[in-house]
């Protein structure tokens, strides 16, 4: 238990690993736009492309934390813009409950974050990644949920 109370200075060279689940129809394209527009953002994210934010099963998020990712970002289309009409509306309900529960069990709010980023928002995508990375850096390496093998 004492381990994750260590001051973050010990991890001066530590860079967080963050997984980003991006919807194919918006945020993934947003990331692409950020790239072609040469917008700088922290290189800490690993992207997994999903067909819709509705595809995200809460288990995915839990497994990421279990497997040692320091943070998780889930990003989909704005309400009303879902390629499949309503996938993100269902997802939003799921995420609300997931987020509440994770915070309740003691996972810091910064670890798991959600955003809406459209295909045209390269700038917003970069900002979101920056914010998530900064938040996770402040929190330090994830220890709580990591599987001890």
């Amino acid at each position: 238990m004492s381990e994750h109370r260590k001051p973050n200075t010990e991890h001066r060279n530590w860079q967080p690993k963050i997984i980003a689940f991006l919807c194919n129809w918006c945020s993934y394209a947003g990331a692409d736009l950020a790239g072609v527009s040469r917008i700088q953002y922290p290189p800490n994210i690993r992207v997994i492309r999903v067909p819709c934010s509705g595809r995200i099963n809460p288990i995915f998020v839990l497994k990421c934390l279990q497997n040692g990712f320091d943070g998780v970002l889930v990003s989909g289309c704005y309400p009303g813009d879902c390629h499949y009409i309503s996938g993100n509306y269902y997802a939003r309900r799921k995420f609300a409950i997931l987020k509440t529960l994770l915070e309740f069990i003691g996972i810091e709010p910064g670890r798991v974050q959600f955003s809406w980023v459209s295909a045209g928002e390269g700038e917003k995508f970069a900002q979101v990644v920056k914010k998530v990375t900064d938040d996770v850096k402040k929190l330090g390496p994830a220890k709580r949920f990591v599987k001890r093998v």
Binding site: P79, Y89, Y90, R92, R93, F95, A96, F114
Partner: peptide, 28 residues
């Protein structure tokens, strides 16, 4: 979502539906 499970046979389970105006204060 204003739902309590098991009270009415006419209800729609909250996770199987949505409302366009659901709160999303936690989403960036």
């Amino acid at each position: 979502f204003g739902y309590t499970a098991g009270l009415s046979l006419d209800a729609t389970p909250p996770m199987a539906t949505f409302n366009e105006d659901d709160k999303e204060e936690f989403i960036m």
